[in-house]
Design a protein around this nucleic acid. Structure first.
Lengths: 190, 190
DNA sequence: CGGGCCTTTGACTGGTTTCAACTTCTGTGG
DNA sequence: CCACAGAAGTTGAAACCAGTCAAAGGCCCG
């Protein structure tokens, strides 16, 4: 049983046995096969998800009825709808496995408990969120400065393995372009 | 002397006199007139800025040599280049006042000090960053689902006061469209 | 082996940019 | 306080990036 979450936390804060078992008592380990839902739109997202192994996508349905992917999550990444989480509001998003995945989830209530019982987890989550903001700034900058074509090339060269793992139409969606145009760009690049 | 930072923190955590003076000893209050720089590109961004009063913009120079605004910051908002901050790397961004502004800044080192001396500040910053991620998700969703025209209408109706305060070409830049096209959209809307 | 989903191809369309010229606003010095 | 220069905003024409639509081909999985 690969406990990647604990390893992930250990990088920031040494945990003793007590703390580890407190964490384990407050989180839930789950295994999902391909195409299973962790969150359905219109439900409140009251959990954070940590991907131990696998690949998730987060998407909403746009005004034309088309799935629009806004985020992927791979091994070692946290994902949630933070708007829904913070405001106790129904979510516009779906979170779904792309491939078979092991996920750790923690509810909002249990997170509060955890932070009270193991205060040094505050630092861990502060850093997780700081990095998330840094990534969001970076991605936003890329979208401002690049054309769709450049953005595609950047993505495919930065994450070549990802292009293998994930269907092309999902990558197109995430990059904000149509499957047809992505296909055209692929032809050009070869 | 309006101490908006302390008020802002008090919303999350009660502070006693000692804690307040610890904070005050580790932050720097500064007043900037219009168009003054808080950060110049190529320098490392080793501080976080809190806007007590006023308005800042964050921008980089794109490949065509044009200023590209990625964020604004108003009263009560934190702003920084977190990529630069976390990795001790030179920044691609400039942060500049748009109008006369009062700013509190805290260096990375002093932030570490502060978090050691006043541990409940961990929670404050964790929440700040969680909200920042929620906002980034929201903004990203808007950009996925809206045309430039819709995005402009959304922005101008959501922040009508902002349209008064900030020059049009800066809003165009932030919205990712040309000043000429924004001008056209304005004409249509009237 | 077959059906349906994914990808490709090509023609057409349109939202947005680019460029250049003109008008209006703003702030600074005399 | 006015004048005027430079910055900001507007207008219109032409070009282009990327989307839409329709149809065909490929491929995966039951």
């Amino acid at each position: 049983m690969p406990d990647n979450l604990i390893k992930h936390i250990q990088k920031v804060a040494d945990l003793n046995e007590d703390e580890i078992s407190t964490i384990q008592s407050l989180v839930e380990h789950q295994h999902f096969s391909k195409r299973k839902f962790l969150l359905h739109e219109q439900n409140q997202c009251d959990k954070l998800f940590f991907v131990e192994k696998g690949c998730l996508r987060m998407y909403f349905i746009n005004s034309k009825g088309v799935e629009q992917i806004t985020q992927f999550a791979l091994d070692g990444w946290w994902i949630s709808d933070y708007q829904s989480l913070l405001n106790n509001a129904p979510s516009d998003y779906n979170i779904q496995t792309i491939e078979e995945s092991s996920v750790v989830s923690i509810s909002k209530q249990n997170l509060d408990q955890l932070l009270l019982k193991v205060p040094r987890m505050e630092k861990y989550f502060r850093l997780i969120f700081t990095k998330a903001v840094a990534n969001a700034q970076y991605r936003s900058k890329l979208m401002y400065e690049m054309s769709k074509e450049e953005f595609y090339i950047h993505f495919s060269t930065s994450f070549p393995d990802f292009m293998q793992r994930v269907p092309q139409y999902m990558i197109a969606s995430y990059l904000g372009l149509t499957p047809e145009y992505l296909s055209e760009l692929r032809k050009k690049s070869v």
